[in-house]
Design a protein around this nucleic acid. Sequence first.
DNA 1: CGATAATTTGATCAATATCAAATATCGTGG
DNA 2: CCACGATATTTGATATTGATCAAATTATCG
Lengths: 206, 206
Amino acid sequence: MQTWIQKITEGMPEVARQRRSVARGDYLFRHRQPAEALFIVVEGRVRMFRELADGTAVTLHVAREGETFAEAALFATNYHCHALAELDTTVICLSTQELMSRLQTDAALGLELSRHLAHQVRDLRAMVCLRDIRSADERLLNWLRQKADNKKMQTVLDRSWTAISQELGLTRETVYRSLARLEELGLISRERTEGGALESIQLRRN
Amino acid sequence: MQTWIQKITEGMPEVARQRRSVARGDYLFRHRQPAEALFIVVEGRVRMFRELADGTAVTLHVAREGETFAEAALFATNYHCHALAELDTTVICLSTQELMSRLQTDAALGLELSRHLAHQVRDLRAMVCLRDIRSADERLLNWLRQKADNKKMQTVLDRSWTAISQELGLTRETVYRSLARLEELGLISRERTEGGALESIQLRRN
DNA sequence: CGATAATTTGATCAATATCAAATATCGTGG
DNA sequence: CCACGATATTTGATATTGATCAAATTATCG
């Protein structure tokens, strides 16, 4: 688990970091409810959305396993959107009250939170930037380069291509075709590390 | 200017928040240089990118007027990318050293920074989410809904459509066509507030 | 070993990008 | 206040490319 979560949760009273399970289709919280917690997804998937006057839903974020969400709850008295479990979901709830009161005095904790958020900002900006690239080949290639070990020019995958294609904003079919094309062109080579099941991609120069 | 910047800069010694002008094509900072400042763009545009072993550039972010960038410099000793002025640019430099030393003890300042970053995270997530919508019409409509005043179901523009189309990840031609189509379908109506030059979009139900 | 998910390739379609060009609007200097 | 250049808006024609639907193969997990 991420460092900041460790630092935040350690020394936090039991009541302030409870687990909660939500069945698929149920709400974790609703718009305008008092913002009592922020969350870490342990398992499942949560969709956050606003609802307009005429009932139209506007999705703001989909939080997946390992991700935190509703950090903004710390700075608001009420939630500004709905959070719906798209699957059977388990989350850890971190009490905003508890956190906030510690943040009032504990500057180190605030730094830890800022660090976490600053990294999120960096990653998200990079993701937006990546999606500005229209060509599937170029987008995939840039993703590989972003992830690559700078010296070895190599990326080791931690997920299926099917999952990665979502992050890329492309269909899996398109991704597989791009992979084939890039390998064809000699820009990458795909290597299956026989020990682990993890595929790794070697970037070739030019 | 954003609140947090006010709070951060007020009471900050003159030396810790200097203006700096950079000519188009010059670097604001380079990869591996000591991370001495984070920045606010006053005017111009700055591109941040990494450079791979073979010289390939990977863009991570393009910061525009009014935006802050390199917040992560606070948590690193060295910059992890290059920052190049794409236009003649003026920035405000906020000393990381000064900021960091204040953040060590000033919990309120840390909260202000966290608040700023949490909002950025929220906005960026919403932007990524929006770009997952493939249809231009749907994407534009959802953008309008995100921006809309919840009661009046109305969005007042603060920029040209040409600028907005970039945020949407669409070409301006596509955006204009979508606008026409959505108005045709009666889903929106475009209204020119004669007083100001600002266009406003009224969302219709269904 | 069976079931489920992931990978891979093919054919076709639809939608957006692109290129082009005309009009409208804005801002600025005279 | 007006003229003029720059920018924004708007519509048209066409091409490209990624999405979609299909299906076969392979890998993974219990």
